[in-house]
Simulated scan of single mutants.
Amino acid sequence: MRTDDDSWDITESVGATALGVAAIRAYETSREDALFRDPYAAKLVGAVGSDGWNSLMAGRLGGQSVSDGELRGWSMGSVLIARTLYFDEYFASAARAGIRQIVILAAGLDARAYRLEWPSGTRVFELDQPKVLAFKDRVLAAEELTVDRREVAIDLRQDWPKALLDKGFEPGEPTAWLAEGLLRYLPGHAQNRLLEQVVELSAPGSRMALNLGMGNDLSDDRERRRKVMAEAGIQLDLENLFYSWEDRADPRDWFAMHRWLVSEGDPVAVLEDHGRSVPEAAKAGMGQHILMTATKPRGDETQ
Rank of each mutant, 00 (worst) to 15 (best):
I154L: 00
Y114C: 03
K162G: 05
R149S: 12
Y90S: 03
S93I: 03
R83P: 02
F91D: 05
P130R: 08
L105H: 10
S65V: 05
V147N: 08
V79I: 15
A142H: 13
L109C: 06
A106Y: 12
G62K: 11
L116N: 14
L140E: 12
S78C: 13
Y86V: 00
F135M: 10
T122N: 09
A95F: 12
G108R: 09
R150C: 02
E70C: 00
Y86E: 03
G69H: 09
G62C: 08
F87D: 06
L71G: 00
A142P: 01
P119L: 14
D110N: 04
I154G: 06
A153K: 11
R123G: 06
L145I: 04
L145A: 06
R157F: 05
V147E: 05
K136D: 11
Q129A: 14
I154N: 01
D148A: 11
A163M: 00
A153R: 15
S75G: 07
T122P: 00
T84W: 06
G108M: 07
W118M: 02
F135I: 00
R115D: 05
A134G: 09
R96T: 15
R149P: 03
I154Y: 00
D159A: 00
D137C: 02
G63F: 14
Q158I: 00
Q101P: 01
M57E: 03
S93K: 14
R83A: 07
P130W: 02
V147G: 04
A153L: 02
L145Q: 15
S65Q: 12
Q64G: 01
I104D: 07
S120D: 15
L71E: 07
S93A: 14
D159N: 14
I102C: 01
E89I: 01
L127K: 08
A107S: 15
R149G: 10
S75D: 05
D155Q: 13
L140I: 11
L61G: 00
S75E: 08
V147W: 11
V66A: 09
G121W: 01
R112T: 07
Q101C: 01
A97V: 01
L156N: 06
G98A: 12
R123T: 01
T84F: 02
Y114D: 03
R150H: 14
D148G: 03
E70T: 07
G69D: 15
D128I: 06
E144L: 09
Y86L: 00
A94I: 07
E117H: 06
R115W: 04
E117R: 13
D148V: 04
L116E: 03
D88P: 02
F87K: 05
D68E: 14
F91Q: 04
R149A: 02
V132D: 02
A142D: 15
L105C: 04
Q101S: 13
L61A: 10
L164S: 07
L164H: 03
F87W: 10
E151D: 13
T122S: 15
F87A: 08
A134C: 06
R138H: 11
R83S: 11
V139F: 09
G59L: 07
A97E: 15
R60Q: 10
I99V: 12
